[in-house]
Design a protein around this nucleic acid. Structure first.
Lengths: 406, 406
DNA sequence: TTTGTTTGTTGTGGCCCCATACAAAACCAG
DNA sequence: CTGGTTTTGTATGGGGCCACAACAAACAAA
């Protein structure tokens, strides 16, 4: 048990890391001002971080630009990128992906392998993932710096167990445990829903955190999503919050069998069916339709217009219930959005009661590595967040801690 | 500024209060075990709480039941109910309500007054509310124990300002400030949306907190709501999350002018219109229709059936996007639910993709005083929550602190 | 009465932060 | 080049808080 007197130190070290992460290199004196701590205290904290290799002193550049300030120049301290590594993985139906990021959150490695995870036993996938992770670790300069592993998969996740993954044919698969016991190093293995991980990846950097609530929508064969509020995932009671594609829109949908769920209007099969309905080729693929949109082909344009109409209706529900400041649209099918952005925005606006509710709507900027990257970033976020169990000796604080300002 | 070394003490005092609130009277030794602190430390904390009148020693009852344990009996310590008071208020279109609760969260006083808040200047309402508050304080045994005031009103609230309240004809009314400057005692005055306050009142006690996410739906002339996740309000980016009644359902609604929003299907006017449509009296009121439902009158039953159908569709959107573990239905029109509970539950279940998503659905147990009580409870919750600004000297922690267990 | 158990309190030591002092490292004016 | 100014980084003493240990008090059981 951490001695209580050290709790303050733990918090302050974490805050120092957080400031260095967000604001980059700075002197001890600047850090002290940012933290509101005494210079001497900050010096002590920095020396601890240096000793743990989480921070480094940046060599002074004598020939640099003339300094604006007078007085003795400070020695800049910054995060040591290699001070910690976080491994993220994604399990898809036909592919496995493993990535590594460093302490600054930068992607430093990425490996993918074709693998029929959708049709083999979960143990086989776990074994292959574990091998890929170990290969990644061996290739890194210091494997002992790896802080943990997080696996994203297209399943409902509860307490580290993949409860239900229809695409993978999984039911109650303790995938984290299966991977952990196949690793030689004793590392924590987390599990997260792939859309949630993607949402974290999309919102982790940049100013999204200040926006408050971000709704992330990913459209592939189905339509899923994640809700991020103040940088944290909103999971709902059963981890199924943000199941955007399951909204019942009335009607029967464009794709058969969808029972009028939104994804039966805007998912991959729906787009292909609607494209055929408008006279497009019956062999078309989503990339082909995107190509046709570039050239303004009428069937593709009409398909996109229909798609945007239903997307807007779904978004209006998101906006009314969640009031996000930003909506991010991702997934390969989601790319259609860029061709109907104006229409969709206008339609969403028309469905709302107040202009105040209208969120910014943007396209995702990440590619296929989104979920794996997000999984790694979840670990990064954990390292930069206070673990209440480390402060409070027993029983935790039961959500005692409240955000400032409310 | 609080010295950093006192931050731990602050946290531990708060944790002690929290344990005493949740688990009731206990000895210092029991408290020490609950907190994971040393008995001596706990004794010091308790003596502080006693000195501040936040806790009291319960007199030993010699003639009580035989103790189960051996050893020296402890002196039970419990919250001192009168140690702190919290005042909540509600502004309705034609009525003002003020309540007071004590440190244990119990309602100790309630005053209502007819007042045309919907048609007078906000300053008049503020003056009247301030007078009611001061009367309440004078009637309490120790006015100096009042910790703050929170006002619930049917408006969008941003930073303590009532941005938009159509019912009251308010726009950018700093109602908190208006009340504060009319009080003789310098007390903080918070402002909260009435539905949000109601949601807090409904979820604050009991086991709702462990359920995770609770969606509270209140149906009167319109349909509003609040989302409470782990005991805290989910507000969205602009404070408009949970605007349940604005969901666009398609069609035109039962009540004219609602443009197919859910509240034009299940709000008061919609119910009355539908009742007439089914042959009911054109002078009927909601209480009358509820009476007719008791006796099984066909027009009323058909009205309720239609109402339940649309309610279920709206609830399915809530469930898909928020995945609450519990849905609470309140408001005078919401009482119809009890007559169609089975049908609504079945309909919601039919709209969902997975039984896992199905929440419990309950009726609100609070009456008219819900919003005012919730407002007071928001202050209570604040007192029992860590203010990060009190721990971190400067700049706060920017959401650094993360809940344990995730 | 004696023994054992648990409670509440009192001292002691360690850790952490703050305030203060001081040397070091720049810039600037002359 | 020299002295003054400003800022940085570090060392030192003091105070607050918690853990640990010791002890008297209060009760039950033998």
């Amino acid at each position: 048990m951490r001695a209580a007197s050290q709790s303050v130190r733990y918090l302050n070290e974490l805050r120092a890391l957080d400031v260095l992460f967000r604001e980059g290199a700075m002197s001890r004196a600047d850090l002290a001002r940012a933290l509101g701590l005494n210079r001497s205290t900050t010096g002590s904290i920095v020396s601890t971080l240096l000793a743990e290799s989480l921070a480094v002193e940046r060599p002074v550049n004598k020939n640099g630009e003339p300094r604006a300030q007078t007085g003795r120049p400070g020695i800049e301290v910054e995060l040591n990128p290699g001070g910690a590594l976080f491994i993220g993985a994604e399990i898809e139906v036909e592919q496995l992906t493993v990535v590594a990021i460093d302490l600054t959150g930068r992607l430093i490695r990425r490996e993918s392998a074709a693998f029929p995870a959708g049709s083999v036993q979960p143990e086989k996938s776990a074994a292959r993932i574990a091998r890929m992770i170990e290969a990644l670790m061996l290739a890194s300069p210091d494997p002992s710096r790896v802080r943990g592993i997080c696996v994203a998969a297209p399943t409902l996740v509860e307490a580290g167990v993949a409860r239900l993954g229809l695409l993978l044919n999984w039911r109650d698969v303790p995938i984290g445990e299966l991977i952990r016991e196949r690793l030689h190093a004793p590392l924590p293995v987390l599990v997260e829903n792939d859309a949630n991980a993607f949402a974290i990846a999309e919102t982790y950097s940049g100013n999204s955190r200040s926006v408050g609530t971000v709704a992330f929508v990913v459209i592939e064969s189905g339509a899923g999503g994640g809700i991020v509020s103040d940088g944290r995932l909103f999971r709902g009671s059963g981890g199924m919050a943000g199941e955007f594609g399951h909204l019942r829109m009335g009607g029967i949908g464009y794709a058969p069998g969808g029972a009028g769920m939104l994804e039966s209007y805007i998912g991959r099969d729906a787009v292909l069916a609607r494209y055929r309905h408008h006279g497009g080729s019956s062999e078309a693929t989503i990339p082909a339709i995107l190509q046709s949109l570039e050239s303004g082909e009428p069937a593709a344009m009409r398909t996109a217009t229909d798609w945007g109409k239903w997307l807007a209706r779904g978004l209006s529900h998101i906006v009314n219930l969640l009031n996000p400041g930003l909506v991010i649209i991702g997934g390969s099918v989601g790319r259609i959005y860029s061709f109907v952005a104006n229409e969709v925005e206008a339609a969403v606006r028309a469905e709302l009661r107040s202009e105040r509710q209208m969120p910014r709507i943007e396209m995702s900027e990440l590619g296929d590595e989104g979920p794996a990257l997000g999984a790694a970033l979840i670990l990064h976020q954990r390292m930069f967040s206070v673990d209440e169990r480390a402060i409070f000796p027993k029983g935790g604080a039961r959500g005692l801690i409240r955000m400032a300002g409310v």
